[in-house]
Design a protein around this nucleic acid. Sequence first.
DNA 1: CAGATTTCGGAGTCATTAATCTGGAATTAT
DNA 2: ATAATTCCAGATTAATGACTCCGAAATCTG
Lengths: 150, 150
Amino acid sequence: MIFSATCNYALRASLYIASYQQKRPFVPIREIADNLGISFHFLTKILQVLTQKGLMVSFRGPHGGVSLAKKADEISLLEIVRAVEGDALFQRCLLGLEHCNDQSPCPLHSRWSSIRREIQDLLSRTSLGKLSRKVLSEGLRLKASENVKS
Amino acid sequence: MIFSATCNYALRASLYIASYQQKRPFVPIREIADNLGISFHFLTKILQVLTQKGLMVSFRGPHGGVSLAKKADEISLLEIVRAVEGDALFQRCLLGLEHCNDQSPCPLHSRWSSIRREIQDLLSRTSLGKLSRKVLSEGLRLKASENVKS
DNA sequence: CAGATTTCGGAGTCATTAATCTGGAATTAT
DNA sequence: ATAATTCCAGATTAATGACTCCGAAATCTG
């Protein structure tokens, strides 16, 4: 629902970096991939996009990796989402109609618009910093939890 | 966003039937496809699913077509969505995590859950009948609007 | 410098969804 | 009967997204 796998990975990886970068200048992609259970090569590609868009900075070689380009409190989830999903995401019609807007609305336009705005507000109000602190203090998970039973 | 093309088509076609069935016993799929700008064969396949799931009834031959299985006021958009998208749609985590729930939540779980519920409520409160009356009275569109300029 | 580490960038594969095509079966009208 | 209409069902193709692979470039260590 809502987001592509690419976008989910981008959010989780960003959150991982914000949470576990600590004093290191860079966090290796391999570490992120291993800890979140994401394909290394695929994640590499996704993070490349984020660095190209200026949200991350990267460094090659030993002790290299990626790092947030700004302070974690200054990066909103919305920025991450927009970087990988593009700008059209928050303009789409619930019925899939092109050019559905206030002038030429579909039957659900007004009601859907307000929910869509809520989603956008949630993402723009929530920063990586805020959320990473919550992850650390409450021990929340970012990975798919492979705990089968036991 | 949110829905697949299949689901969009299912909703629009259902709404078309509810709006334009008038006194006819059945509405031909060809007419729906032409008026909504959807591939006939593809729409056929989608409506077959809706009839298999008991939401529509169909009839072959001249003056055949498909028809709502219940009164339009008794069919919610949610029923249509569930029939084509399956049941998992309204349980998915914003970060794409499996088994994200109150016991083992992701960092966004509580906030996302409430928005997700709003979406589900909107769809379950809105019936085909209610929405089709709105379509007719306000002249709202169900198709992609090919008005280039003129 | 040699070798290990790590990102970069492009190409290729696989799976799922979207869409098309073709023939057949049911029904009606002539 | 025969033809026309319309849904049904399966096969095929196209497009997109998800994921893999590999060689190259940058950087550090010894």
